[in-house]
């Protein structure tokens, strides 16, 4: 091959992917959830649009989006973010405004899923999970979680103040509906930390969502707080784990588009596909996170529905995560948690 033809071939090879199809970078949290999204969202979208999706995993660090937006070098097109981050990022101008005429009919979605900068994609819950092989008498609520006499052994909790303070108050007898009212007062925060101190010697901390089912299966702990989908994934692998839904804290994850994303239009199209009733139905079948599209909910059969945080039975005594409370108090409470953990 002559030199010039080699150069031409190289150039053509470099230009080929760009010519053949457009690319979209979609960022999610990976794991069992990422696998379900790949099947329910990525693959159908690649088929319908002809675009290629590059999947990227991250751990929810908004700093990465902020750095991209500030340096005007935005390589991510669609990002899955947790609810506190959709508010914060929207306030600080990190996300594009969502064009609802392109992504879907607002009325089809649950009210909490409609946001100026994002589209809610699924409802997940932080719940009490236990190893049903080891505990014959299933724990039912957070008071049981705190009861080290009846259920001896370690408990795993997420490292940090978020969720744990709410659980502590519920263990102390506060009704789910009143948790944030109590936690908002100095005496309430004091009460939550005091209750957490009771359990401190028995707590093993987790950081990544994959850890709690591992701890349960390995026998390191008898109970844990966990994301319901992770427990569901372990159950599907044949592990005998159980969930107590009372006092679980449910929350939404959102699709957002970082400000200045290169493929904004394609990103909107992707979000529209991923928010459609069909795609969300398929997703809920793969992992037990609740759809935000009401039409998807209507399509699911009762067996799948019973596993979702949004089913009437499971959400009866559940608590919705209070974004505003944590946006205001989060930093102070997390710092207090670090100070508490050091003592």
């Amino acid at each position: 091959m002559s030199k010039t033809s080699l150069v031409a071939a190289l150039l053509a090879a470099a230009a080929l992917p760009a010519l053949a199809q457009s690319q979209l970078t979609v960022v999610n949290f990976g794991g069992a959830n990422g696998a379900a999204q790949k099947k329910a969202y990525f693959e159908p979208f690649e088929k319908s649009s002809g675009a290629k999706i590059v999947g990227v995993e991250y751990n929810g660090e908004q700093a990465k989006i902020k750095a991209m937006v500030e340096t005007k070098n935005v390589t991510w097109d669609v990002v899955e973010v947790e609810s506190p981050d959709v508010n914060r990022g929207c306030d600080e101008g990190l996300f594009e405004k969502m064009d609802w005429s392109k992504v879907g009919n607002k009325a089809d979605f649950q009210p909490a899923a409609v946001h100026e900068c994002g589209v809610g994609t699924f409802v997940w819950s932080t719940v009490l999970a236990y190893n049903a092989d080891k505990l014959k008498d299933a724990p039912k609520n957070w008071a049981d979680f705190w009861d080290v006499k009846k259920y001896p052994g370690k408990r795993a909790m997420r490292k940090g103040a978020r969720y744990n303070l709410e659980f502590a108050l519920m263990a102390d007898g506060v009704k789910p509906a009143e948790v944030y009212k109590v936690l908002g007062t100095p005496a309430g925060a004091e009460r939550a930390f005091a209750k957490l101190s009771e359990l401190k010697p028995s707590i093993q901390w987790w950081e990544a969502g994959a850890q709690p089912p591992q701890f349960l299966v390995a026998g390191d702990v008898v109970m844990t707080t966990a994301y319901n989908g992770r427990i569901d994934a372990a159950q599907r692998e044949g592990k005998n784990l159980g969930i107590a839904w009372y006092g679980g804290i449910y929350d939404l994850d959102f699709w957002v588009i970082p400000k200045g994303a290169a493929n904004k239009d394609l990103a909107m199209k992707y979000i529209a596909t991923a928010s459609s009733a069909d795609a969300q139905t398929e997703y809920a079948r793969l992992i037990s996170y609740g759809p935000t599209n009401n039409k998807a909910l209507a399509k699911l059969d009762p067996k799948v529905l019973a596993l979702l945080p949004t089913s009437p039975a499971n959400s009866k005594d559940a608590l919705q995560f209070n974004i505003k409370f944590w946006a205001d108090q989060g930093e102070e409470l997390e710092k207090r948690f670090a100070s508490w953990a050091a003592k």
Binding site: R88, C90, D91, E92, G93, L94, A327, D328, Q329, E331, E332
Partner: peptide, 17 residues
């Protein structure tokens, strides 16, 4: 809005809420 967001974040580290 971005400026207001940055301001809100900064002040929140000093005074929660």
């Amino acid at each position: 809005g971005a400026q207001a967001g940055a301001l809100a974040r900064r002040l929140n580290t000093e005074a929660a809420g």
